[in-house]
């Protein structure tokens, strides 16, 4: 899609304010919390530190695009089933980072998941159920 936007607008602002895609959240706008993570060409980035113009031509995936054909992604299902989302505010970013991890490494160990999610702060869950949910999604449903 093409969108005209002011140069000084970050991808975060373009998504939330110009496109009305408010699923992408923000917590500091300085790259210090990971809340605003989106995928650019499959890689997780901080949308508060990418300009809209820098995303030109890139494939940008936000939480709104994670369901496919009306079906939740296995990660979304696992997060819901295990109560990994408490207040839920950090969850869109975390789900996308987890998706990028599983896309490149379908069976990560718990430490690899920890490492990959170390740039996404969550204040509610202590990460425990989040790690469990990523493991569960990786193993495929029905294992727990």
């Amino acid at each position: 899609m093409e969108i005209a936007s002011e140069t000084a607008k970050t991808l975060l602002e373009v998504l939330r304010e110009d496109l009305g895609l408010t699923g992408t959240k923000h917590g500091c706008e300085l790259g210090e919390c990971g809340t605003c993570a989106v995928l650019m060409d499959g890689k997780p980035v901080l949308s508060c530190l990418v300009l809209g113009v820098e995303a030109e031509g890139a494939d940008v995936a936000t939480i709104e695009g994670m369901m496919q054909g009306g079906q939740p992604h296995p990660l979304q299902r696992a997060f819901a089933d295990l109560g990994a989302a408490q207040c839920g505010y950090c969850i869109p970013g975390i789900l996308l980072v987890a998706k990028a991890l599983l896309d490149s490494n379908p069976h990560p160990g718990r430490d690899e998941i920890r490492e990959m999610l170390s740039g996404n702060l969550c204040r509610c869950t202590g990460y425990t159920k989040i790690l469990d949910a990523v493991e569960m999604a990786a193993k495929g449903r029905g294992d727990l």
Partner: peptide, 9 residues
């Protein structure tokens, strides 16, 4: 350096 997200950028 910082976080996996930041290192991608």
């Amino acid at each position: 350096v910082s976080t996996p997200l930041l290192r991608n950028m």
